[in-house]
Design a protein around this nucleic acid. Structure first.
Lengths: 198, 198, 198, 198
DNA sequence: GATGAATGAGGTTTCATTCAT
DNA sequence: CATGAATGAAACCTCATTCAT
């Protein structure tokens, strides 16, 4: 099928809507995330929303998916630089935590809404998928090198690490406690490392 | 509360309303938490809500406060049994984590809504207060016994522990991963202990 | 029937309610004139209102009646001092207008509500009755002395005078234009006098 | 107005709403002026009201403004016919009073509500503006020709005249006393004329 | 496809009134 | 008689969604 102009325009409209949804969410919170407001922000009519999205939730889902994809991609990118013999050594760990923190810091307003204000919907599933992916990565790695840890159940260890680190990063970003960023990274690395060899 | 209920009937009505609010929240989610639905569930008229609560949020606040108070009380109770020379030894740690898990397991449906669906409002503040309280407790303990840890910043260490453990307990309760309860407790204790002495 | 204590108490309660109604009306306007607020101000329970008044309007009616009775009485009193051969001479006229103004000035807040905020109800009828009474007085006087005026229809003349003077007094009291009170009285007397002999 | 109606259908809807508001007000009084009732009378859904009006009061304001504008326009039109050397001569006076009466007679039911039942809001201000305008007109005229009156303070005289005449016209229209229309006009003219030269 | 007017169910809240205690 | 808890209709308003143009 050839790319006719109308398809290109459609694509653009979808983009405008998604961008508007994200902006409304980040700047005004979930309460303000009404179809009318999103349409206005996108510069389209309310009716047009329904040409591209089944309902309000569908827009929300795309915004959410994109956000967590971005986060995942940034964390993943921090790994691709240093694929070596010791991917879970302290330096790699620190690089990952640093990347995660940087990704979350990029848009704290949106993060707050996504992490704390959203009804069930897609969000949960999306975030869970991200966790699962990282978890499997770690579990696989640990399983492959028996010396890397003394933990008996590597799947469990991977799960604990992901859940714990995720929340430390999240809380630090959203609550802005008076701890230096570098110190927090230190502690994350220390905790994970100590845990693995304990 | 708008009017402090003197008669027995009043107190009963207030209780019915709060219980109904909690039930609606747990069983139908925050979206369903409408004054009409709560009133219907409580078996009172919509107007009666406003005899005792300034607005919808006031009901929500009471439900939230009660819930976190219950959790705090149960965790605190697990400590009162074992006030000894080593409050942060592995056994005490395990007892606390066990109590926390048990408290959260009591009503996972409600927990899910409180932890994941609620708009800012009172919830955030209430939960933050709980975290702060536990954090201060730990920090004070660590500061008092220099040998208990090698972590340089005890306030930071306390913060990391609370945030990490909280999320592990929360996730295990809500996501029901296929790990045995006892094993999860093992890992929590291991992680905290290893981190402190690292 | 002998005056037992309960009757005396009833009387007192009625007074408290009426006074409360007047106070609420004057201080907070008609919108605030709710049965609950009046009961609270009177220090009785909402239910008690209905022991003495059929409904909310009944309370309003009493407040209105009393107010206009007071006004009427004060204007009438200003006449009783000077019953002579020439009750509508300039001096008497001025005394009446002065008394009216003084009566209205006594409680401008209440006057504003009664004159401008009230729904139909009793108010209209009550105020009309007052006007009618003064009108008849004037008409009777004019009819009795053919030389007092050149106006062909004394009933009409009386009506015009009452309606015109009433509004001048009302407006001056409520809108507080920057005219001296004495000058306004001058003009009222002048207008009426000139009109009558024209 | 919330949205300036571009399509023909929109304008029609706005008109229907305003007309319905006016009808409800005139036929059922201010108490019946609820958004639901106005919407029903207009044959639109309650939500449609809020496409064009910020809230209930905004509808009321338009109804009020239009009404007094109509009155003002009719009175003004009666003057434009006879701009001559003597704008406040008896004939002009009579023409104005006649026009005012005719304007008020057009919709006595609505007049009653606007003049007697409305809460503060826009109405007061609107009517006061009308009075002020006429007052200034008269005062200016009187100031320009010293012979037209013997009254010492022309501003005061203008104010007295406007307030007095307004109420006579209003009362005659609303209370329908048994005086002939022509006679009432006679008396108004007589009163004003006599007052001015007194 | 796009528009934006229209919908209408349902949200929160008030308040005149009733009635068991 | 008095109380005050309870009622419930009805108020204003929002917003996801539809549909004629």
């Amino acid at each position: 099928m050839r790319r006719n102009p109308s398809q290109a325009r459609s694509r653009q409209t979808v983009e405008r809507i998604v961008a508007a949804g994200r902006a409304v969410l980040a700047e005004q919170g979930y309460d303000a995330f009404s179809t009318n407001r999103v349409a206005a922000e996108a510069g389209v009519s309310p009716g047009s929303l329904y040409q591209y999205f089944a309902d309000k939730d569908a827009i929300l889902t795309v915004v959410i998916d994109r956000y967590w994809d971005e986060v995942a991609e940034q964390v993943a990118a921090s790994l691709s630089d240093r694929i070596g013999p010791e991917p879970l050594g302290p330096e790699t760990l620190r690089a990952m935590a640093d990347a995660l923190l940087r990704a979350l810091e990029a848009d704290p307003a949106l993060l707050r809404v996504l992490a704390q204000e959203l009804p069930q919907s897609a969000n949960r599933e999306r975030r869970a998928a991200l966790e699962r992916r990282v978890r499997d990565l770690i579990a696989t790695y640990l399983a492959a090198r028996p010396n890397a840890t003394r933990r008996p159940d590597v799947a469990l260890a991977a799960w604990v690490i992901v859940v714990a680190v995720e929340n430390v990063a999240l809380h630090w970003t959203l609550d802005r406690p008076a701890f230096e960023r570098e110190r927090v990274l230190d502690e994350i690395v220390t905790m994970v490392t100590a845990y693995l060899v304990a």
